[in-house]
Amino acid sequence: MQDISLDYIVKEVIDRVKKEIFIEVEASGRHIHLCEKDINILFGQGYNLTKSKELSQPGQYACNERVTLIGPKGTIKNVVVLGPSRPHTQVELSLTDALSLGAKIPVRESGNIDNTPGITISTEKSSITLDKGVIVAKRHIHITPEDAAKFKVRDKEEVKVEVLGTRPLIFEDTVIRVSKNFRTYMHIDYDEANACGYKKGTLCRIIK
Rank of each mutant, 00 (worst) to 15 (best):
Q2G: 13
I4V: 14
D7V: 12
Y8G: 07
E12T: 11
K19S: 15
I21D: 09
I21L: 15
F22S: 06
I23P: 02
I23Q: 03
V25S: 05
I32D: 02
I32V: 14
K37I: 10
K37A: 12
I39R: 00
L42W: 00
F43M: 05
F43R: 01
Q45K: 15
Y47K: 06
T50W: 00
T50M: 06
K51F: 00
K51L: 03
K51Y: 01
K53V: 10
E54Q: 14
L55W: 05
S56W: 01
G59M: 03
G59R: 04
C63A: 05
E65Y: 00
V67Y: 02
L69M: 11
I70V: 13
G71Q: 01
G71E: 01
P72M: 13
T75K: 15
I76S: 11
K77E: 12
G83S: 02
H88I: 12
Q90F: 11
Q90P: 14
S94D: 04
L95S: 12
L95F: 11
T96A: 10
A98T: 08
L99H: 14
L101S: 03
K104Y: 14
V107T: 15
E109T: 15
G111C: 07
N112Q: 15
N112P: 13
T120S: 14
I121C: 03
K125V: 04
S126C: 00
K132Y: 09
K132P: 08
V136K: 04
V136T: 10
V136P: 04
V136S: 06
A137G: 09
A137H: 04
K138L: 13
H140F: 08
T144R: 11
T144H: 11
P145Y: 04
A148I: 05
A148D: 03
K150G: 07
F151C: 06
K152V: 14
V153P: 09
R154T: 15
K156L: 13
E157N: 04
E162C: 04
G165W: 03
G165A: 10
R167G: 03
R167L: 10
P168H: 01
I170W: 00
E172T: 15
T174E: 03
R177S: 06
Y185N: 14
M186T: 02
H187W: 08
I188T: 02
Y190H: 14
A193L: 08
N194D: 13
G197T: 05
Y198E: 00
G201T: 01
T202V: 01
L203S: 02
I206V: 12
K208T: 05
